[in-house]
Design a binder for these strands. Structure first.
Lengths: 363, 363
DNA sequence: TGTTATTGCACCATCGATTGTGCAAAAAGG
DNA sequence: CCTTTTTGCACAATCGATGGTGCAATAACA
């Protein structure tokens, strides 16, 4: 009500209105007034003035002066799959809880774009960066290092900065064991029935392949090779890999390890093109979690990386700022078929009040 | 190589190194040097110096001075479903293409948090805001208006600012017709077999309910009521609604209209708790698109809002800045069961080179 | 050669906050 | 009553970039 012009009030406006100096106003508003021995009277007066004028700090000005912006970045390759979007959601919550402003950006798996994007973030003086699923971690690291920007790698290892990663090998092994066990119930299994699709030459894929082979070799008692279809992280390439396999073998492998939900979409596209055919006898293990994928018309085992825990560790590492880069490993969770987990969505306040039956069931 | 200290170079550093004044350096670096009649020689010299020193503009300083930050915000309720995460992905691309820095934030469907979040964005002097799926559009609008911040509503109507929305009524009608037609093939259908789950008292839900009823009434030739289960946008509430229905009727409705993929997750949770039972005879229509949902073991028709087009129109509206708020309507797309669409992911450069068979198939 | 135009750039205030320092007035101590 | 301490605040520099203005040096013209 007290604002006449539509311009935003500054400390100078409040200074004039209150009769105090701008530095006093500033101290009152940023909470350092006790340290500066401003009287409680003056502080109260200024605070209520600020409220009446709807004052809000210009964070660009503050950031410029104090070279702290209050922004934390999260760099993901892409948003639109459940893994990264759920990570973004969790990140936002954790950043806000620490009084920081989250800024999520995507590098689109292009080393050049990744660097440019990080440069931009740095140009806004972000205070810290979480790097998740980038193509060229060390390139990004160098950009950060030059700018003196604290950063951690999430779910991918970097030699140059601390990292929190999933146990890809162990997770893949457990996942592979699960699908082997399940598929074996459907009849005799041969090593050729068990194929991995997706990934490329990155750390996570290599580890998962190792885990996959470990489980497979243990199961069959023989070394097996030629069971990996590298497709990158692209639905289209994965679809083509499935088409090739199908053209060659006239069927899908009975037991499929799929490297990520993005690759899984490639399988969906393949299936969409083969509409009449049933693929009821396949068993899929996917290193990722998506609730809808879990209910597909064939058994889908999933390994869910613990994004929430990884981010939490990431924040801790940033605060601790260890001398030398450390690497922490977090276990992914094996998710059985037909499982719809609760997620970050469930933390949000519900606009519809809990009903009676809610209390009855969960009381 | 030329950077000794780890501090970032400023125009003053370049000024000293080049012998030119800071204002000259500034003009050269921001491209206004022709207007300021700086010689090409000087400009070249400064530009190569800047490159050598890895100079990048401090965008906080620029923003402070010019009260333009280059930031555009997108406010979504939550990230982690395909609709909003895909919207975020598209938004990022479109913003970058316009030379802007996208900032995606979530308001978590809490009016208070929505306002706070927008206040924060304003404090960073963002230049424009896209508001998508907020609980209290007009509250957010007032915050924007006070700050003189240009903004548009995406996929939700607001009386106070321009909006680009989906044709919820028409889309729902088409979707309902599709599931009715499909379900009718499975035998005689009664109005009681056709139920809508999800939504609450917001514009989109009301419109969808209207479209749902229009299609249903046309199909059965009678007015039908008591076929709406309001659950909010919460998986848990939706799950409970299904449980209640199931407890009452000992079955699911044969023909289900689900208001959004978030509500659909509630159905998954219900199904996860009823593991042995088959729900093979149901037909689902969901006002949202998710590729995995499209391949579930029952027919799933989906209506996909055209986020990309809505955002494009949003940018256009911001540029045109019409006198009075306008409202534009975009048709959603009906997606048949077992369809895996290409999406923003397919625009990104693929790290794995196209193989021979790729060329063969698409050549 | 003298005068006007043009070129090429430097100077300086400014955006809105933060923070080290200094200095009166009031309070405390002797 | 005089000195020392404490209280309460104002002043001014600063963060890095922008853009209006002014002023030499050079070029163009008569």
């Amino acid at each position: 009500m007290a604002d006449q012009s539509s311009k935003k009030a500054t400390i100078y406006d409040l200074s004039v209105l209150s009769g105090a100096s701008a530095s006093t106003v500033s101290a009152v508003l940023n909470g350092t007034w006790q340290k500066r021995r401003i009287s409680a009277d003056t502080a109260d007066r200024i605070l209520s003035l600020a409220k009446a004028q709807r004052y809000t700090t210009n964070l660009q000005a503050r950031g410029l002066r104090s070279s702290k912006s209050g922004l934390v970045g999260l760099l993901v390759p892409v948003y639109d799959n459940r893994f990264f979007s759920s990570m973004a959601q969790t990140f936002e919550g954790q950043a806000r809880a620490r009084g920081l402003s989250p800024m999520v950006v995507s590098g689109r798996r292009d080393p050049e774009e990744e660097r440019r994007t990080v440069e931009t973030l740095i140009a806004y003086s972000i205070d810290a960066l979480f790097i998740a699923g980038v193509t060229d971690p060390d390139g990004v690291h160098q950009v950060c290092a030059r700018a003196g920007l604290p950063h951690v790698n999430i779910d991918l290892p970097g030699k140059l900065a601390s990292s929190v990663i999933s146990d890809n090998r162990g997770g893949a092994q457990v996942l592979t064991e699960a699908i082997l066990r399940h598929a074996a119930q459907g009849g005799m299994l041969s090593p050729d029935d068990v194929v991995l699709f997706g990934g490329h030459d990155d750390h996570a894929s290599r580890e998962r392949i190792t885990g996959f082979h470990a489980a497979k070799n243990a199961f069959f008692g023989v070394e097996s090779g030629d069971d990996i279809e590298i497709t990158g992280y692209s639905p289209r390439m994965t679809e083509l890999a499935f088409e090739r396999f199908y053209a060659r073998e006239s069927r899908l492998p009975r037991c499929l390890f799929i490297n990520s939900s993005i690759n899984f979409e490639g399988l969906l596209r393949f299936m969409g093109r083969h509409d009449g055919e049933a693929f009821g006898d396949i068993v899929v293990g996917c290193f990722d979690y998506d609730p809808f994928a879990s209910f597909l018309p064939f058994p889908v085992y999933m390994a869910k990386p613990n994004a929430s825990e990884m981010l939490k560790r990431g924040f801790e590492l940033l605060e601790a700022a260890p001398e030398r880069p450390v690497l922490q490993m977090i276990e992914p969770q094996l998710i059985l078929p037909r499982t719809a987990l609760v997620g970050p969505l469930d933390d949000i306040r519900d606009p519809v009040a809990p009903s009676k039956s809610f209390d009855q069931r969960h009381g």
